[in-house]
Design a protein around this nucleic acid. Structure first.
Length: 271
DNA sequence: AGATGTCCCTGGAAGC
DNA sequence: TGCTTCCAGGGACATC
């Protein structure tokens, strides 16, 4: 279940290696979430210039057009010049002059989508509504507070919606709210500026820490099945229902918000 | 326009 | 042991 840190670490694991590579062949397995949007063969001969990221999307910027990759919740990428034969869960593969890029995604929530430019309708549809990048300078407490104005939904759900800030998934949302001492059910527009500032700091800290952890295990990461979990993230609340809070020992609570599980400490996150 | 619910998919865990 | 059921998740889409 890759969130922003996992996607970023994935990007770092192969971006430099694939830059400048020529696409020699394209292989597709079962359909993913959305159609590729072009004839696979039409990608042959193009060159991968750079790999960038927007939210949880990876962008393979080609000399003509681009590929938008999303890992869904069970997707992982491998890039190597020697990969074993494709398995049943390997649904997209680029053979390039520098190695093979393979997307494995058992649950097929992921996607590979071709767009001619960032302004193409399909790219605008997927990327257009995304909020600010949390690890860039434009993510800033006051602006974050403004983005929450008029949002009557719970802060947890607004975080997940991805239009105020991108990349915070279900796990890191719970973790960041715990770090900020904010109850996940609190209405987003009821949070004071200082509390939004705390949340802002918590989001940045949680995501940066996860990227650093992932970066430190990069060697394992690129060769593994991608199932190494959240970089052995030491969760403070996520998945710890009933277990004692690591700060105050109060049992962690689990609730559901918008069909998603949320974890929090009723003592450390009072409002 | 914002909020909420539904759906896609399948491996693994839990229940019988 | 072998079946069925439930759950996890991101995000587009439909509906209110």
């Amino acid at each position: 279940m890759p969130e922003l840190p996992e996607v970023e670490v994935t990007r770092l694991s192969f971006a430099d290696h694939i830059a400048g590579a020529r696409i020699l062949a394209v292989e597709v397995g079962k359909p993913l979430r959305w159609p590729l949007g072009c004839e696979p063969k039409s990608l042959v001969g193009r060159t991968v210039l750079t790999v960038t990221r927007r939210g949880k999307y990876l962008l393979l910027n080609l000399d003509r057009g681009l590929l938008l990759l999303h890992l869904g919740m069970s997707g992982s990428l491998q890039f190597s010049d020697r990969l074993p034969p494709r398995g049943v869960h390997d649904h997209f593969e680029l053979e390039t002059s520098c190695g093979r890029l393979r997307l494995r995604d058992p649950r097929r929530f992921g996607a590979v989508v071709h767009a001619e430019t960032l302004e193409a309708p399909v790219a605008r549809k997927l990327l257009g509504g995304l909020g600010v990048e949390p690890l860039e300078a434009r993510f800033e407490p006051l602006r974050f507070h403004q983005a929450l104005r008029g949002r009557r939904a719970s802060i947890k759900q607004v975080l997940l919606a991805g239009d105020a800030v991108v990349g915070v998934g279900n796990i890191y949302a719970s973790e960041a709210l715990f770090m900020a001492g904010i109850r996940p059910t609190q209405r987003a527009d009821r949070l004071s500026k200082p509390r939004v500032a705390r949340l802002h700091g918590a989001i940045v800290t949680v995501l940066r820490r996860a990227v650093a952890l992932g970066g430190s295990t990069l060697r394992d990461f690129s060769s593994a099945e991608g199932q190494s979990g959240y970089f052995q993230l030491d969760a403070m609340v996520y998945g710890r229902e009933g277990l004692p809070c690591r700060v105050c020992a109060t049992p962690i609570k689990s609730i559901r918000q918008g069909q998603r599980s949320t974890f929090y400490c009723p003592q450390c996150q009072k409002a």
